[in-house]
């Protein structure tokens, strides 16, 4: 490999990693946290068959799972601006990623809630606990344990998907790489480099997932 190429790779590394730390990771963390709140709320509402809210949840999930993420980003960032609702790139990305991820995770959490044996809720009632108390202390913890691997997968997928935010001018890792490439024209080396940084991020998350599963797994052991 030529000295020039090495120079470019070494030089670009912090320029890609820093937007990773200041944009990719915050976007992922904020949007995924919000997505979890949405997912749990939507799953609980559906699980309890709350009238109207359940239908609204179904509609929301239908829209966000049925249309491309990229289209959703464009609608919120470029589309809404056209009707006077101007949202900055980063908050636009947060909104879209939260809603999109929330829709997928709501289904995961709902399925996990339904997998908890119905006797658990009845035992809660018989112990004098209310529906919400039993949900919070008994049903939801068990469901989250079941959903954990699947939710971790979603999180890992999301770290990579944040690269789509480049399309609405969020300067995250991918866009930072594009900018450098526009200057030096070394697409092969630069895109492999950014790919490796994504790989690093997902590897760390996979490792954390393993630790989390071990910790949560205590009561599963026979």
């Amino acid at each position: 490999m030529s000295e020039r190429l090495w120079g470019i790779l070494i030089d670009s590394f912090p320029k890609i990693l820093i937007p990773g730390l200041t944009a990719t990771i915050p976007l992922t963390v904020i949007a995924f946290s919000l997505a979890m709140v949405i997912a749990v709320a939507a799953a609980m509402a559906q699980f309890a068959h709350v009238p109207v809210v359940t239908q609204l949840c179904r509609f929301y999930i239908w829209i966000f799972r049925g249309t491309p993420l990229l289209v959703q980003l464009f609608v919120v960032f470029y589309g809404l601006a056209k009707v006077g609702i101007r949202i900055d790139p980063f908050p636009s990305a947060v909104i879209v990623f939260s809603l999109n991820e929330g829709a997928y995770c709501a289904e995961t959490v709902r399925a996990a809630l339904e997998a908890v044996p119905s006797g658990q809720l009845e035992a809660g009632y018989c112990a004098g606990m209310s529906y919400l108390q039993t949900m919070r202390r008994i049903i939801l913890p068990q469901a989250m344990r079941t959903a954990f691997p699947s939710l971790s997968n979603s999180l890992i997928a999301m770290v990579k998907d944040t690269s789509l935010a480049a399309n609405i001018t969020v300067v995250e890792m991918f866009r930072a790489t594009q900018k450098i490439d526009a200057r030096v024209y070394e697409p092969l080396a630069l895109y492999i480099e950014v790919g490796l940084i994504y790989l690093l991020f997902s590897t760390v998350l996979t490792w954390l997932q393993g630790i989390g599963e071990k910790k949560l797994g205590a009561y599963e052991e026979g």
Binding site: A127, M129, R137
Partner: peptide, 26 residues
């Protein structure tokens, strides 16, 4: 109080926590 055919202990709680749960929460 109710004792079920298939026990229905809270699966995410230890034996002690199972007995304490209703006392603390309810």
């Amino acid at each position: 109080a109710f004792v079920f055919q298939n026990y229905n202990l809270f699966l995410n709680k230890t034996a002690l926590q199972n007995v304490m749960e209703g006392l603390i929460v309810a």
